[in-house]
């Protein structure tokens, strides 16, 4: 039970792992923008190549990355099919009964499939796989801090996420303990219809919630005892600091986006609308 890992973080010593989390959040955002700048076969090829390059330097085994794509396979197929059959164009490739497939439809389906895959792979490389959730939370707090002027509870939000992350292993352990205790009293979680099994979870959830509230109460007291009084006047042990490599990565992505725009202007072949 001690081996719970938070999220999908994959510990390694790559260049991307070593980047400042704040820059990674910005990079991920810019990379999404890049993927939407692509309009023709050349730019999509460049996008695919850039994703492959990112995978290579992140040191994450492609096998693990493919696993992260599994939940979106259905969405992927759905969009591909929709685009393939419902795009009308000028060059009819195939026609049977009421089904007409155009060249434009095939290209659109292909482009969108590439875009979705690159979107998922790109963001998960920049964010979930190479950044610990806690670093990500701190980065978001730091990036969103200008919103404090508008009285947005940025610090409180980050603190909530931190505490939630902190209590995931504790509550998982507790769930297992309660389940074992209920099993010892003859509870059955594995047989019966889905409704029956869902109902069997109630005797787990009730004690879990009761204990979570008790824990929350004790934690609040403990935090008060350690002089917690909100984010005002708070200093930090670990202040994030940017290094030249963070700026280089940022510049590379901006340059990549500019390149994509150029490719669009002097594009060849089919251009997506």
């Amino acid at each position: 039970m001690n081996n719970i890992s938070f999220g999908q973080y994959y510990p390694a010593n790559s260049l991307i792992h070593s980047l400042d989390a704040r820059f990674k959040v910005i990079c991920a955002f810019l990379y999404i923008v890049c993927s939407f700048l692509c309009k023709n076969i050349l730019s999509f090829a460049a996008l695919l190549a850039s994703a492959a390059l990112l995978v290579a330097i992140s040191g994450i085994p492609p096998k693990i990355l493919l696993k992260s794509l599994r939940p979106i396979i259905f969405i992927l197929l759905f969009t591909v099919v929709i685009n393939m059959f419902w795009t009308s164009g000028e060059n009819l490739v195939f026609s049977w009964w009421k089904i007409r497939i155009y060249y434009e439809g095939i290209m659109n389906a292909l482009f969108i499939a590439v875009r979705i895959v690159v979107l998922i792979v790109g963001t998960s490389i920049f964010l979930t796989y190479t950044t610990t959730p806690i670093a990500l939370t701190d980065a978001l707090e730091s990036l969103l801090s200008p919103l404090k002027v508008l009285r947005a509870p940025v610090h409180e939000f980050a603190m909530m996420i931190t505490i939630a992350l902190r209590f995931i292993p504790t509550l998982t352990e507790e769930t297992n303990r309660i389940m074992a205790a209920q099993k010892a009293r003859g509870a059955d979680f594995t047989t019966g219809s889905i409704f029956k099994r869902a109902r069997a979870l109630i005797p787990i959830l009730v004690p879990l919630f009761v204990s979570a509230f008790r824990r929350a109460d004790e934690l609040a007291t403990a935090m008060e005892c350690r002089c917690y009084h909100g984010g005002e006047g708070r200093t930090r042990l670990n202040i994030p600091h940017s290094r030249p490599r963070d700026y280089v990565m940022l510049l590379l992505i901006v340059a990549f986006g500019a390149g994509l725009i150029l490719i669009n202007i002097y594009g060849i072949g089919y251009t997506m609308k």
């Binding site: 824990r215 004790e218 934690l219 002089c227 917690y228 930090r236 042990l237």
Partner: peptide, 28 residues
């Protein structure tokens, strides 16, 4: 307090120890 799990705030040991001084606004 009694239950160590209910008084540790951070997910890393050094960050948890720093929690008090951070709240007091001590320089890094």
């Amino acid at each position: 307090f009694q239950n160590p799990d209910n008084q540790i705030v951070a997910t890393i040991v050094e960050e948890d120890i720093a929690f008090g001084p951070e709240n007091l606004g001590i320089p890094t």
